[in-house]
């Protein structure tokens, strides 16, 4: 194999980079995860440099090129490599621009859900029994609904827009973080180092954020990676149902919905946004699996 595999992680390096190296050592074991990581990086670059990469403005309409097929098919031209949609807009540009929205949705939703969920989970883990019970029952109620249905109801109440869709998805994803954080907090809290910090006089806030939280992060990071894809998928689903981003926003789900009626006449208008969603979500899930394998000591093969 490559030269890197010959050097197992050693303790001689400074601790932080040593831990990073160990992480990479375990992460690399999983081929699919590395593959997913590269696709995710490409996706992120697309999102970051969308205006430079895309050949046209995603909303510009070329009226004489309506529903032009992709370049390799008869009637296609390299001016529009992936063809054009019913309004004559370039598919490639729209897909690249759509990566931006998806990435944005993923980041905002995960940040919102994770920060809220971690905070509530920490409080729940440290709270007296009654408060803990109230919080967990509320989370159970949220979890009892199918997530998309609940998001749909929330958007219907708030009004359809990408922002409201993100808020709704964030609320729906939150209970997972709450439960995960609470569970790790409960198991960490019993350990002696927490008692030691208490004996030394650490305040409750210090115990929560400085002593316990850093030791609970590994499963939360994995959950964040996995819910990134859930967020993208849910946002696309809401967009498809007309409850997310509104036309002419080149959001992948919205694009699918717009092109639905042309599915038999022009396969490319539905296939490409669908493929984009599929590949992105798959890549992030693969990467998340690898993260879990690398970060969870219980699954580590020695």
């Amino acid at each position: 194999m490559t030269e890197a595999s010959a050097t197992p992680p050693t303790g001689s390096a400074p601790a932080r980079s040593g831990r990073l190296r160990e992480f990479w050592y375990y992460f690399r074991e999983n081929r699919g995860a590395v593959f997913g990581l590269w696709i995710f990086v490409a996706f992120a670059l697309c999102a970051a440099f969308a205006p430079i990469l895309s050949p046209y403005d995603p909303t510009e309409q070329f009226r004489q090129h309506i529903l032009q097929p992709p370049a390799w098919q008869e009637g296609g031209s390299w001016a529009f490599p992936l063809g054009t949609d019913p309004l004559g807009r370039d598919m490639l540009s729209r897909l690249i621009e759509g990566a931006r929205y998806s990435f944005f949705v993923g980041i905002v939703v995960v940040t919102f859900a994770a920060s809220g969920g971690i905070l509530v989970g920490l409080i729940s883990g440290f709270a007296p029994k009654w408060l803990d019970m109230i919080i967990m029952r509320i989370m159970d109620i949220i979890l009892a609904f199918p997530s998309l249905l609940l998001a749909l109801v929330l958007v219907a109440i708030l009004g359809p827009s990408l922002t409201n869709a993100m808020i709704a998805i964030g609320i729906v994803l939150q209970p997972h973080y709450v439960r995960l954080t609470r569970a790790s907090v409960m198991s960490e809290r019993k350990k002696d180092y927490v008692t030691a910090a208490r004996v030394v006089g650490a305040s409750r806030l210090r115990l929560m954020f400085v002593t316990v939280l850093p030791n609970c992060l590994a499963p939360i990071i994995v959950q964040a990676a996995l819910s990134f894809s859930t967020a993208i998928l849910d946002a696309a689903a809401l967009g498809f149902l007309g409850m997310g981003a509104q036309p002419p926003t080149p959001e992948w789900g919205t694009m699918l919905a717009e092109a639905r009626e042309f599915i038999l006449r022009a396969w490319w208008v539905v296939t490409f946004p669908g493929l984009a969603i599929l590949v992105t979500v798959l890549a992030i899930n693969l990467m998340g699996d690898g993260l879990r394998d690398a970060l969870d000591p219980k699954l580590k093969r020695s």
Binding site: K191, D192, Y193, T195, A196, A197, V199, V200, T211, P214, N215
Partner: peptide
């Protein structure tokens, strides 16, 4: 102050 029994659990790993 106190010293605990289990030296593996009594120091914060982070």
């Amino acid at each position: 102050q106190i010293v605990f029994q289990d030296p593996y659990g009594s120091l914060n790993p982070r």
